[in-house]
Each structure stands twice: as structure tokens, then as C-alpha cells.
Design a protein around this nucleic acid. Sequence first.
DNA 1: AGTGTATTTAACATATTGGTTAAATATAGA
DNA 2: TCTATATTTAACCAATATGTTAAATACACT
Lengths: 117, 117
Amino acid sequence: MTPDRLSTTFAALADPTRRAILARLADSEVSVQELAEPFDISLPAVSRHLKVLEHAGLIVRGRKAQWRPCRLQAGPLKDIAAWVEEYRRYWDESFDRLDIYLNELQGKDKKHERKKK
Amino acid sequence: MTPDRLSTTFAALADPTRRAILARLADSEVSVQELAEPFDISLPAVSRHLKVLEHAGLIVRGRKAQWRPCRLQAGPLKDIAAWVEEYRRYWDESFDRLDIYLNELQGKDKKHERKKK
DNA sequence: AGTGTATTTAACATATTGGTTAAATATAGA
DNA sequence: TCTATATTTAACCAATATGTTAAATACACT
């Protein structure tokens, strides 16, 4: 079962260490050692997290001597944003979904309308 | 290790079956059997997916006779949206990043290139 | 060639995930 | 109470994920 791209991205993000790594990379290119420093896990563990992120297309890695600097590639996050955006109206209006739903069926609800994208 | 809320939400979304279930629930409240129908997996498997979604706070379940109708709760998606929104500027500038990356690749010695996976 | 530093791979252990089938539970209705 | 329907739980299995330590690899420098 080859997981689809969106699933791979979501799975990569479902780990606080990996999200922290991405946050760190938002600032600048960082080496593996530097990335590993704040975490209480071994270097190989970090290396594996990086592999997951790389496979998900969320980072790219360069080569500078023996360093493999990592850089953020936010492209896949765009798909996440697009996916979740489809549900915005449900959390915006979650206090009374049924009401909204019925109004939409009637094609006349304006006060809750939310233009997106 | 109790995973944080954001990780739980991302993990719940990292499965195409579960995302399809959420999409279906966007329209209306649906019973487990109706939800299961389009999928080629057993009912217990669907039941377990629902438990994952429920645990992530993405659905709530009612009780109507022997049915357990499921309803979307989009609240956690709001956190996902907020998280991903922090990276919008990075995918907006992703062309530049790709450009930089390609330039660096060009300058690199390829003879040690290994095949991946 | 030999050393130091950075990183990855190998080998392994364990936990979680996602699926199965069979049995159990909950409710409605005759 | 008995039966039918809807759903969950139990027991199990295979695959994947995440961590470890030890060894291998890549590169710069002498």
C-alpha cells in the first residue's frame, strides 16, 4: 500500500520532534548536529527523522564537506493548507452546523458566508 | 510518551480512509455502516478508524437506537490551519529556494552519488 | 596513508498501526 | 423472551515507526 502524498506529509508532521526541526529550519540552513542538539535522542534518531522529512519533500539537503545542511522546503505544506482550508467553514460555524447547513440548502445564507482563497 | 494534541491530530489525518470519512461527514451525520460502504475494509476496521478520529476530537458520536451516527467536529483542524499558516511565506518563496538548491547542485561533485532506497 | 569530525547504515528491540475473523454488546420490535 | 440489525471488543497477525548502540562512510587536513 503506497501511501499517497498527502498521507505521507501528514505522517511526517505527526511528530513533535520533526515539527521542531522544521521550525528550526525556518530560520536558516542547519547541520544535523545543530539540529540534534536540543533533543534528548541520539544522532541516528535525528538522522532518521530527517530522512522522513526528506522523503516527504519537506526538506532538502545539501553537502558542504562532511556536513549535510538541511533546508526547509515548504511546498508540501501548501497542500496541507489547501486540504484543511476546505474545512474552515466547519470550524468557523461549528456552534451550529445544522443551522448553517439548512441555510445553505436554501441557498440564501449570507451572514455566515466566508469567502476563501 | 503521550503525544501532544497537534501530533494526535496530524496522525489521525495521515490516513486516506480517515480523511475520506471526514469528507463524507462534512455533508451530514452518517452511520457507521454507511461510512463503511465505500471502503474495501471490514466493519471493525472502520470502527477503529472512527475511534482514532474520535480520540483526536475530529468527530463526535451520537446514539440513535442501535446506530452510532458520527458528526464532524472541525475544531482540531483549526489548530492544523494555524500551524501550517506559519509556513505560508516559505512556500510562497519556494521558487527562490528551489532555484538556490539547483544552483548548489550544479556546483557539486557527483562522483560519490549513491542510489537512494 | 592516517586522523578527526559529521553523518549514515546495520542490527536489533519494542510499540504502534491497521487489518482480519469470531464473539460480545446494545437496541428495536414481534 | 427471541430475533434481527448495528456496532464494538477480543484475539491475533504483519508491517511500520522509533529508539538504541556499534560500525561504516564521507570529507578535510596533515
